[in-house]
């Protein structure tokens, strides 16, 4: 288990003054996974990422990244890690290309001979080749974001840590980033991605962790996290009949919307209890002569689960 993890933290804690920004975090990111790191604003995601990358020291706890202790093995680990932390940062007076050349030169282990070729390849990969010679202060938010992602891709990486990679991107850009992450993951790179876009995480990630107020509140595969109640919804003009059939199958009916009595609308929904298959429900409905217009089975969305874990409120955790 230990050697298999791309990132492993135990008891990781960061205290700012009297606030525990990250509190006793035990996180395991399996190698080869696309790992979604979720949490409301101020929940400690970025602080965690800063500690992983050695930018901030942990108050207590341990970090192992790619099998080596951090920040002890920082010099040998970080060249294998590409990162986008809290948005891109640019030298506005340099061209996009010169920005990458400079950041690549900062890597003591990056071979100079291939520098230009690698920079051009990274620019090409994020679709910035045409703007490579342009001064970066003229870049749009999305172009800066692409430049930041290109920086993470300057060398072949074993691990990518991407903080809000889709921030500021147009829908095309978001799709491109999604397919980029998929192709990197297919090449065997572990991708650790934090995002507020739950639909993105849902489409991309194999594993998910959720933070709230500095603590880890959920941690596991996407399936494990989403495994809550699965419900079946029947659209039918014979709602009352359908409700009776579902009750006979021992499926707990949902409370009808206010003002309706059970079965008076044109749809009925119920929790699909373990062991009852959707096709059993369909067969029972048809056998009872219910005119079925549609039947859908849906698990809890990640958003519903996220809100259930981290609370409804709009207040930023302070």
């Amino acid at each position: 288990m230990t050697t298999d993890a791309a990132i492993e933290t135990s008891g990781l804690t960061k205290i700012f003054g009297r606030q525990r920004a990250v509190d006793d975090l035990d996180l395991t990111v399996p190698r080869g996974s696309v790992f979604g790191f979720l949490g409301p604003n101020g929940s400690g995601k970025t602080t965690t990422i800063r500690m992983l990358l050695g930018l901030a020291g942990a108050s207590s706890g341990e970090i192992r990244m790619l099998g080596a202790p951090m920040p002890g093995a920082l010099r040998s680990v970080l060249p294998r890690v590409g990162a986008l932390v809290e948005g891109p940062a640019i030298y506005p007076f340099l061209s996009g290309r010169a920005n990458l050349l400079r950041l690549d030169a900062a890597d003591l282990h990056a071979p100079s001979a291939t520098r230009r070729a690698r920079v051009d390849a990274a620019l090409d990969r994020v679709g910035l080749s045409h703007a490579a010679q342009k001064k970066a202060h003229a870049y749009s938010l999305g172009m800066k974001q692409r430049l930041g992602i290109a920086n993470a891709l300057l060398r072949p990486r074993d691990l990518l840590i991407l903080d809000e990679p889709s921030n500021g991107l147009d829908p095309q850009g978001t799709r491109e980033v999604r397919s980029l992450i998929r192709s990197l993951a297919a090449e065997g790179t572990t991708v650790f991605v934090s995002s507020h876009l739950l639909s993105e995480i849902e489409q991309l990630c194999s594993h998910v962790a959720v933070m709230s107020a500095g603590r880890l509140v959920a941690h596991g595969t996407l399936e494990e996290l989403r495994r809550g109640e699965v419900r079946v919804t029947v659209r039918t003009p014979d709602a009352a009949n359908a409700a009776r059939v579902l009750t006979e199958l021992n499926l707990p009916l949902d409370e009808p919307a206010s003002g309706d009595t059970a079965g008076s609308g044109d749809s009925v929904s119920a929790v699909l209890v373990d062991g009852v298959l959707p096709e059993t429900v369909t067969a029972a409905l048809v056998a009872a002569g219910v005119r079925v217009r549609g039947l859908s089975v849906a698990g809890e969305t990640l958003e519903e689960r996220f809100v259930a874990l981290t609370g409804e409120g709009f207040d930023v955790a302070g």
């Binding site: 990162a83 932390v85 640019i90 030298y91 950041l103 690549d104 900062a106 920086n151």
Partner: peptide
Amino acid sequence: GTLRYLLVAP
């Protein structure tokens, strides 16, 4: 903000 990227380079 480039300081963090220089340090992460590393």
